[in-house]
Design a protein around this nucleic acid. Structure first.
Lengths: 341, 341
DNA sequence: GAGTTTTTGATGTACGTAAATCAGAAATTC
DNA sequence: GAATTTCTGATTTACGTACATCAAAAACTC
């Protein structure tokens, strides 16, 4: 049987109350006594029974998730995953509240962060926008001791505790590597469709993409970036114009959302040209396009994993517990037509 | 606050003991009373507090993992993950015992399964070998009500409850797709290095690989399969011989383990020829080879995920709980040089 | 309607920890 | 060495559920 607090008390020759004081960092224990208790904990290999502790504490974790109201499948999926987490909330002692804000609007994000702070939650998760005013708002949360996790898009240089998302530079590099190899040495221009250069994840993907193309596939050139704001309509217009303007276009990398529009534009130009296309995020639309051969590869981040990871980390930080980094790494999924789930 | 058994009892107008009888399917409750209680449970949206329940039960889950003693990095990794799970066991009320058996030996596996059965564990996980005597041994476990999960390699047509591993046909298809596209229309032979056609996962990978090559890249032919038994030494000899015999070899698909030998053979032939190589399982060896450009892509299954998933499922089955299929799907990771973790 | 069986109620203990209270011991201060 | 402050011990209650026991009530049987 694993040791309990009673065993620690007996082994250390102190009372249960003292063990409790040591375990929960309550004051009123001399250094010498504390050392005795800690020695006993080590000796017996005591691990606190988290289930029993939570039961006794009756602790709940009020969490706030701040999400953009973007109208694209990925964000819809993210919202859905948060809703699923809310449904499971009862069983996990979490109480998740969602604040929706306009996309790509740093001011709105700051307002939401400050509003969240007023609720004194056990933790806050946000899809970050890369702006100093946002960093300041995160700092205000940190000041109050509220753990903060960035979701999908990171905010380096801020006081956030963790980033639950993929390595976007690696994603961009991977896209370039696949695109380059699929093109097999051909020379010509490729287009890049992004959402906005305001969000860090898009900028980083572009950075990684450009770096690998330049280093390993110098014959492939990159056209000026199209900013679709993750809106299908806008994306369609931009892509259609590019297709018309560049008869020699070899391929396209869609590093943001709004792929519905991209796919519509590609379909509209018919099967005349065979473009090599790499896109992000597996949705009903990209999945169908993969199967139809319109898209060649999809890089995906699993929104469900990201949400669950963010929750685990916020709870752990709130309790001052360590995080198992390896388990929380969010991987880049690569989907071809042949390994669709 | 979420409702407790007390609330149910009050709301249904019965005693706590009766609620307990209904919840835990104990006898001695009239159908009408049972209905009343169940109505109250629905009405209040009661969910059992699993933490409290486990605490009260003091339940532990003795699990048995049967693993081959193969001397390759993937199996070493799998063993390591199981050991990590054992280290976490205390906190999760599991008590995991490992039985090691010789690789590719159905008779030894049957002996181990029967030995496991004698211990009356809460569940058994095994790396399956595709043989009817193994199916029979699994059936004997099922007969006793012991949940069984296959790990890494499946055993279809058996009474196993779940398979914690990747879709190997999809893995083979993906390998073919990548290889074909990386070769960009060239014609010639490719080699396949497998461990053994005795294990299902290797057979299925080959099947998927051959199917896609034939359908989409008819100019690429497949040489007779090399069986390396997942042993580095043997793999090296086989690959070296094939390289010597086929000057026009375009590429190689290593669908099993023992890639140390493969890499040694590839290095030995120097940089004269540029083969396109796809391998399985990310280990220190394949990682280094990816970085050196010796291997072009690695398909990986995350052993840690598989082990943790197997444990979750065995516990859930032991308690008669439902499994969240979507969460337990093991994905095929594709690693290029650019997205190495 | 007496006897039997089945169903229900009331109550208590246990799981391992948290948290509070109060009394007593030890250390510190002057 | 008395007064004060700081530690420590002993004990109790609580969290939500599981499980056991015994008594009481209700439902059957003949």
């Amino acid at each position: 049987m694993r040791p309990t607090v009673h065993d620690i008390a007996a082994s250390a020759g102190v009372s249960l109350a003292t063990v409790d004081r040591v375990l929960n960092r309550r004051p009123g224990v001399r250094a010498a006594t504390r050392a005795k208790v800690e020695a006993a904990i080590d000796r017996l290999g005591y691990v606190r029974d988290v289930a029993a502790a939570n039961l006794a504490k009756g602790r709940v974790y009020p969490l706030v998730f701040i999400l953009p109201d973007s109208n694209n499948s990925f964000m819809h999926g993210l919202h859905a995953e948060v809703r699923e987490a809310i449904a499971r909330a009862a069983a996990e002692r979490t109480d998740i509240r969602v604040i929706e804000i306009p996309a790509f609007d740093p001011a709105a994000l700051v307002v939401a962060l400050d509003a969240a702070r007023a609720e004194r939650p056990a933790g806050v998760a946000l899809v970050a926008i890369d702006a100093d005013e946002v960093r300041d708002a995160v700092a205000r949360l940190a000041e109050k001791g509220v753990p903060v996790v960035t979701l999908v898009s990171d905010l380096p240089g801020s006081r956030r505790d963790h980033y639950a998302g993929v390595d976007n530079i690696a994603a961009g590099r991977t896209a370039a590597s696949l695109l380059g190899r699929f093109l097999g040495g051909r020379a010509g221009p490729v287009a890049v469709l992004a959402g906005s250069m305001l969000v860090r994840d898009h900028r980083e993907r572009l950075e990684g993409f450009a770096a690998v193309l330049q280093a390993e596939f110098p014959d492939i050139t990159i056209l000026p970036v199209l900013e679709g704001r993750d809106e299908p309509q806008r994306a369609e217009t931009l892509v259609a114009a590019t297709l018309a303007a560049h008869a020699d276009l070899l391929g396209l990398y869609s590093l943001g959302a709004g792929n519905r529009g991209l796919i519509a534009a590609l379909k509209a130009q018919g099967g005349e040209r065979s473009l090599t296309v790499i896109a992000h995020e597996l949705t009903v639309h990209t999945r169908a396009a993969l199967q139809d051969g319109i898209i060649d590869a999809v890089l995906n981040q699993d929104a469900g994993h990201e949400v669950r990871s963010a929750i685990r980390i916020l709870k752990a930080k709130a309790d001052g517990l360590a995080v198992v980094e390896a388990q929380e790494r969010i991987r880049i999924d690569i989907f071809l037509r042949d390994n669709l789930p």
